[in-house]
Design a protein around this nucleic acid. Structure first.
Length: 512
RNA sequence: GCGCCUCUAGCUCAACGGCAGAGCAACGGACUCUUAAUCCGCAGGUUCCGGGUUCGAAUCCCGGGGGGCGCACCA
């Protein structure tokens, strides 16, 4: 099969997978063939490494110049720089741990090894076995008596000094971005350290990690437009999940008292610096707890992630500084709205009154929005963007919280919170609605909204209601947006910078 | 979806209506202590694509494509 054929000709902006630099590629192919002619395999099966670059630096810190340690080490990595000096060649060998210099005395090598060194290009994976020494300038080095080509790179890497800047290429060829740009690796190291820390923290809290369907007959658990696909075997259309929520709660019904899932959700909506069609969320449900416990858990989890991934608790976002030091303030949404508009609004107020307040603030409102939705939109558009420090906003209208338990004091208010940081929603959580007939009634209201044309109304889910009829214990649920968390921790402004392979248009589009 | 910006050598960028260039990488050469090595030499282009204006277009105009940012929608 020829994966590249379809994208060969006329590719835009120099990202042609066939490579526009055929001459450079041919040059390296020729070097590779010369190695084969000499009986050297440019793609051998394995290499016995005995030390990483970091281990050598750790073991031999502070050696005087021109020291011979007597230690023989076998190192492997990518050639990041070559400095030829006639019969003496310096190369910077980069591995996952760092870099170490190779100090190659070509005169001391066998012919075959000398030919291998001769064939080295930037980007090649090589192995070297030799004594650990320091150069006259004091640089820790391996002086190889034996060298191997481990994988010949036949395509040139980007400029070793300026790196790779073109965002298109960085996202399409992330592997090249990772090699060329140190900071890219830093961001993803933070991401994976944060996710690992969240898993550890959840495990320590007694949660079981589970997996629930991504292909679902009916996407639920959030208000969003799904992607659709088709299962040939059953000849049915399926949605990609927009949230794992309903399945996770069914597991709590089944007796898993503390469950969580870290996984991809898919929403067929806008793409911008804050939104990706596929994004990662952590959802967690704990029995016998309410939304206040959810806030406590949220605080512990995010602090654990920040500590493990960065060792810091303050982060900059543009001009702003965000301090994650707990505890975080907990405020009431209706109180905040009152402080903003100068009068107390309530979801039970006549719609016209609330709409008038929104109009005064210059908001565009939809005719089908009720008072609760209007108050929520007011919060979302006017209040939330100005909240910088981590803040739990509590008490959302039931109208916009179809899966949340209502407050004991006020049937129009849900026992729900959002954690807002730097003007963005990071976490959503609530006391889960566990009264089956009430859930069914909420679904009916959503179905009615859908009938009025609301594309994001929550679909009714009879299987979920049936599950509730077997009894969902009192339960607290939270959902954490992992991508946004990583953006904060890594201090980057675009969600694409924290997703390894963000969704892009295909490289070679259909003929115009 | 709308607006603004952007696309030039493998990479990073100049040239902005008048000969398409530099640095790095490559290639040939010198060099046994460099580390963005240095020095000498040499080569490398569908200026994203298609039209148009012009004596002349990388440059101006129109259309298309990719990407970025902002707005809208959303988390």
């Amino acid at each position: 099969m020829d994966r590249e054929a379809g994208a060969a000709a006329g590719s835009p902006s120099g990202t042609d997978p066939q490579g526009g630099s055929e001459a450079l590629r041919q040059e390296r192919l020729a070097k590779r063939d010369r190695l084969r002619t000499r009986g050297v395999d440019p793609y051998p099966a394995r290499f016995d490494r005995t030390a990483t670059a970091a281990e050598l630096h750790e073991r031999h810190a502070g050696l005087a110049p021109d020291t011979r340690t007597g230690e023989i080490a076998a190192v492997a990595g990518r050639i990041a720089a070559i400095r030829g000096h006639g019969q003496l060649v310096f190369a910077t060998l980069q591995d996952a741990s760092g870099a170490v210099q190779l100090l190659v005395q070509r005169t001391g090598l066998a012919d075959a090894a000398a030919a291998v060194v001769e064939s080295w290009d930037l980007g090649d994976w090589v192995g070297a076995v030799g004594e650990v020494v320091t150069s006259r300038r004091g640089e820790l080095s391996v002086e190889p008596s034996e060298v191997m080509m481990l994988s010949k790179a036949v395509r040139p890497l980007p400029d070793k000094w300026h790196g790779l800047n073109d965002p298109d290429t960085r996202y399409r060829q992330r592997e090249v971005d990772l090699v060329a740009n140190r900071d890219t690796r830093r961001v993803f190291d933070i991401r994976f350290a944060a996710v690992a820390a969240l898993r550890r923290a959840m495990e320590a809290e007694g949660f079981v990690e589970v997996e629930t369907p991504i292909l679902q007959p009916q996407a639920g658990g959030a208000l969003a437009r799904p992607f659709f696909t088709h299962a040939n075997a059953l000849d049915i259309d399926l949605s990609l999940r927009i949230a794992p929520e309903l399945y996770l709660k069914r597991l709590v019904v089944g007796g898993y008292e503390r469950v969580f899932e870290i996984g991809r959700n898919f929403r067929n909506e806008g793409v911008d610096t804050r939104h990706s069609p596929e994004f990662t969320a952590l959802e967690a449900y704990q029995a016998f707890a309410d939304f206040r416990d959810g806030m406590d858990l949220t605080e512990r989890l995010l602090v654990a992630a920040a500590d493990a991934a960065t060792g810091r608790r303050t982060f900059t976002s543009g001009e702003r500084v965000v301090d994650l030091t707990p505890p975080w303030p907990r405020v009431d949404l209706l109180d905040e709205v009152e402080a903003l508009v100068g009068r107390r609004l309530h979801p039970g107020d006549p719609r016209a009154d609330v709409a008038a307040v929104c109009a005064e603030l210059g908001m565009e409102v939809q005719p089908e929005w009720g008072s609760g939705k209007l108050i929520f939109e007011l919060y979302d558009a006017v209040l939330l963007p100005h909240i910088t420090r981590p803040t739990f906003v509590c008490g959302f209208p039931v109208e916009v919280s179809p899966l949340s338990r209502h407050s004991a004091d006020d049937p129009a208010i849900a026992d729900r919170f959002e954690l807002v940081i730097d003007g963005r929603e990071f976490v959503n959580g609530y006391s889960e609605l566990n009264v089956p007939e009430e859930q069914e009634a909420r679904f009916r209201a959503e179905i009615a909204a859908a009938a009025r044309g609301d594309l994001e109304a929550h679909p009714g889910d009879l299987a979920f209601v049936r599950a509730l009829e077997y009894g969902l214990p009192p339960t607290s649920g939270i959902g954490i947006g992992i991508d946004r968390l990583v953006m904060l921790l890594a201090e980057v402004s675009s969600i694409r910078d924290v997703i390894l392979f963000p969704m892009l248009r295909p490289e070679a589009g259909p003929p115009a």
